[in-house]
């Protein structure tokens, strides 16, 4: 059984208009997203700005109200607030944000910042609490003298590690990391990613790793979902996505990642421009008349793609003849 199952999740925002300011339409920020996260794995959710990846994260943790769909955790739908309370969901699922400075209270010392979730969920006495905070600081590689400092006294990478320490304080099962290293320099990024992996090994935490950086996602995640316009267009293992991308959007996204190999510069550029041309030509066929992606079709046991109906038919027939469960 998966740790958490997101099923046909939708988050729509009403657009108001007309004279009486009534709801005339919806912005479909998230429109039918389905995926599961297994215990101890890092699940990658990739998309460009406006794809709905952050809204998905917020809906999963309960910061955003789901319009429809379920998020099943321990057999209960945690899109309902009372279930979240009953299951201690907010202790089990924590979040790390992109901007560590604005997500840490500037007037609180690090001791209080990290102890806050402990105080909310576990009732420790002063001594125990301090011990735990020190342990947590040690896990993320910060000295004890950090206890009495304020967030602004740390560098970006250190603050992000403090964010990690706070997130793991309550021994969560799942950490949702929304662009956790996007604001960091390369060398600091390496440090934070290593810590995230170390903590995962140590505590068996799962991550929902949200990023637009395909290089980082490839490094961190075994299973990856590509999202655009509120829907997932491709899901698969790292190998499926990077070696055999099938949706035109994924192909284009991958082709756009800069290569660090200067020797292949021209070839890579040519490849990118080719893909771009194909994208411009075929784009329309990959989305329905409302501009939304088609339903996912299984193309291999691990790999699903939102293929246009004609292509999808082919794969459905194939899988039927092979007897693969779709």
């Amino acid at each position: 059984m998966s740790l958490i199952e997101i099923n046909d999740l939708k988050v729509h925002y009403p657009i108001r208009g007309g004279f009486w300011n009534r709801i005339v339409d919806n912005v479909k920020a998230v429109d039918g997203v389905t995926f599961n996260i297994e215990a101890g794995e890092t699940y990658g959710l990739v998309g460009e700005s406006g794809s709905g990846k952050s809204t998905t994260a917020k809906a999963i943790i309960g910061l955003e109200k789901a319009t429809a769909g379920t998020v099943m955790y321990n057999g209960k739908d945690v899109t309902k607030a009372e279930n979240r309370r009953k299951l201690d969901y907010n202790r089990d699922v924590q979040m790390i944000f992109q901007d560590s400075l604005s997500s840490l209270n500037p007037r609180k010392r690090i001791e209080d910042v990290i102890a806050e979730p402990l105080r909310n969920f576990e009732h420790l006495d002063k001594e125990e609490e301090k011990l735990r905070v020190l342990q947590l600081l040690d896990i993320v590689g910060l000295d004890a003298d950090a206890l009495y400092k304020y967030p602004h006294q740390f560098s970006g990478g250190q603050r992000q590690r403090i964010g990690v320490a706070r997130a793991v304080a309550t021994h969560p099962k799942l950490i949702i990391a929304d662009e956790p290293v996007s604001a960091l320099d390369l060398s600091v990024q390496a440090q934070v990613l290593n810590f995230m992996k170390k903590i995962q090994r140590q505590f068996g935490i799962s991550y929902l790793f949200i990023s637009h950086d395909l290089g980082v996602v490839r490094h961190m995640c075994k299973n990856i979902a590509i999202m655009t316009r509120g829907r997932i267009v491709e899901v698969g293992t790292r190998e499926d996505i990077y070696n055999n991308p099938m949706h035109i959007y994924t192909k284009r996204l991958l082709a756009a990642i800069p290569e660090t190999n200067v020797n292949h510069r021209e070839a890579h550029r040519k490849h990118r421009l080719e893909i771009e041309k194909i994208y411009q030509e075929q784009q329309a066929t990959y989305y329905d008349q409302d501009g939304m992606a088609f339903p996912l079709v299984k193309v291999s046991p691990t790999h699903s793609v939102a293929l246009p109906p004609e292509l999808a038919k082919k794969f459905e027939q194939q899988s039927e003849s092979k007897g693969v469960n779709v």
């Binding site: 390496a190 490839r218 660090t260």
Partner: peptide
């Protein structure tokens, strides 16, 4: 830098 060939190693 995260590279293609050091997928699961520490950076």
């Amino acid at each position: 830098m995260p590279q293609r060939d050091n997928e699961s190693d520490d950076l």
